[in-house]
Write a protein that binds this DNA or RNA. Sequence first.
DNA 1: CATGGGTCCTGAGTGC
DNA 2: TGCACTCAGGACCCAT
Length: 289
Amino acid sequence: MPELPEVETVRRSLEALIVGKTMASVEVRLARIIRTPPDAAAFAALLTGCRVEAVRRRGKYLLFEVPPWTLVSHLRMEGQYRLASALEPESPHTHVVFHFTDGTELRYRDVRQFGTMDLVRDLAEAPEGLRTLGPEPFDPLLTAAAFYGRIHGRQAPIKAVLLDQTCLAGLGNIYVDEALFAARIHPQRPADRVTKREASVLLHEIREVLTRAIEAGGSSVRTYVNGYGRHGGFQVELSVYGREGQPCRVCGTEILKLRVAGRGTHVCPTCQGRPKQRRRRRKTARQGA
DNA sequence: CATGGGTCCTGAGTGC
DNA sequence: TGCACTCAGGACCCAT
């Protein structure tokens, strides 16, 4: 559930909370979370004594710069970081605890245990998912033409392509549905049949929805909280996600929920048309010609 | 290579 | 009230 806006919000909170702190010890209680190095005890030992210099983000990955290491962390569905004093009671499902020398501690909590951590020296050692990531949505080099080039030629539904992190980094189920609604494109449309003009609008709307969501501190539709334990506010601004059965905010048509790319998918059948439907205007134009 | 489906995991929700 | 079942989905794994 944490997508780019939520991970960015967590990043900003952690940047303010832990940069400059030194790790006194690290406790790993659920070894499966640690992928690199394979030995969780080694993970803890290698971090001990290191100072947090920065907290960065790439796609949905959090990158803790802890020289000489980079801690690559992915929250997957429900991973949460929370800075606490050692005296505060601990929430259940806390799997990793980073104890700092000042008596505070960073707690990693993950009910569903899907999250991962990789401690690496450089990008070459980083997990494949990070190395093969597509461009950041806000990368100025990602022009409308470049974006069109990335989705063009793919037969899969546009939604599946946007969820593919090697195509574009950071989108997940919520913001894909929201961006496609804003761009008035049906999620089932083969990516190949998205026109240049539509791709340009789509990229614009992706940036728009991500920007607004970051400003609101992300969407808390399930369990998401930032490093202060605070919920986001964007869930009340969502146009289609989680709104099945409710009226479209633009045209009043009932929002439908379908299954696309194996994911629950929310769509306004009026605003977003149907995947194979021809525009009547096109016929009219031909008649006029 | 591209694509789609199964898998991991737990808690919330649903129906009988 | 209790219990079985379904659903939620990011990234990875594998079959086609």
